[in-house]
Amino acid sequence: MKLKTKGIKNNVYLFFISLSVVYLTLRFVMLILLSLKFALISPDGKEFIMGTLIPDFFFLTIYWIASFLYFRNTKIQLIISLVIFIVLVISILPRLYIAQEYHIIEDRNLKDDYAVSYHTYKIIGEKYRGNSVQVYKKVFPFTYKPQSEYKDSTDQAGDIMMELYRKNYKIKDGNTLTIGDFEIPLK
């Protein structure tokens, strides 16, 4: 009876180790997509790089506990867990710095799904800032490919940002996003 219980426990530990390895594989796929300049965007417009912070630590903890209980020589698993933990802790500040907020463009006249990110930039010799809007087209669930960037150097930076937050924009001819006087072709 005791041997049967030990076998079930080992299977449970292996399940959690395998689950952690599957999660790690998905994270590597996400990192590859990010390195190829794709944007991973949640339905509420947040970047997935911030949403994975808690699951990263959660699955690391699951891996560490399950591998500690399953393997007899825990030094190797401890070293692997510590290295991953150090990488995760070091990556917190860069994640905060590079994470962007996206605006999902919602309109029934659009043929494809789009998202935009909005930035301002300094114009030399002017007291106001220019606008820059990067357009992304959805290619897979939660995965958007950058299309093109459009810049406007007029003094309407605050207006454009507020209109995007309020979702106060129009789609013209099924392929042009209009925010105030700023027109952005979606292609």
Score class of each variant (00 low, 15 high):
M1G: 15
M1K: 15
K2F: 13
T5I: 15
T5L: 14
T5E: 15
K6H: 10
G7S: 15
G7I: 14
G7Y: 15
K9I: 15
N10W: 04
N11F: 13
N11D: 12
Y13L: 03
Y13P: 03
S18T: 12
L19C: 09
V21L: 12
V22T: 04
Y23P: 01
Y23H: 02
Y23N: 00
L24M: 13
L26S: 08
F28N: 14
V29F: 09
L31A: 15
I32M: 07
L33M: 11
S35I: 10
L36Y: 12
F38W: 07
L40S: 04
P43W: 04
D44S: 09
G45T: 01
K46L: 07
K46T: 09
I54M: 09
P55F: 06
F58D: 04
I62T: 04
Y63H: 00
Y63I: 02
W64L: 10
W64Y: 09
I65F: 03
I65T: 01
A66S: 01
S67T: 03
S67R: 03
F68M: 07
L69A: 06
Y70D: 06
Y70V: 08
R72H: 09
R72L: 11
R72W: 03
R72A: 05
R72D: 08
R72E: 14
K75Q: 14
I76E: 08
L78Q: 11
I79N: 06
I79K: 06
S81D: 01
L82A: 07
L82I: 08
V83Y: 04
V83R: 02
I86V: 13
L88E: 03
L88M: 06
I90A: 08
S91I: 04
S91T: 08
S91P: 05
S91K: 11
I92G: 07
I92F: 13
L96T: 07
I98W: 07
I98A: 07
I98M: 12
Y102I: 06
Y102A: 01
H103C: 07
I105M: 01
I105P: 00
R108V: 13
L110P: 00
K111T: 13
D113P: 05
A115G: 02
V116N: 00
S117L: 07
Y118H: 09
Y118I: 08
T120G: 08
I123L: 09
I123M: 05
I123G: 01
G125A: 01
G125K: 03
K127Y: 13
Y128C: 02
Y128T: 06
Y128Q: 05
R129T: 08
G130K: 05
N131Y: 07
S132C: 13
S132W: 08
V133Q: 05
Q134T: 11
Q134N: 12
Y136E: 04
Y136F: 09
Y136Q: 01
K137S: 06
K138C: 07
V139F: 08
F140G: 06
F140N: 12
T143E: 04
S148A: 15
S148F: 15
D152R: 02
Q156T: 12
Q156P: 02
A157P: 02
A157N: 03
G158S: 05
I160V: 14
I160R: 02
M162G: 11
L164S: 00
Y165I: 14
K167F: 03
Y169C: 02
Y169D: 03
K172H: 10
D173Q: 10
N175Q: 10
T178S: 10
T178F: 07
D181F: 09
F182I: 00
E183L: 05
I184K: 00
L186D: 02
K187T: 12
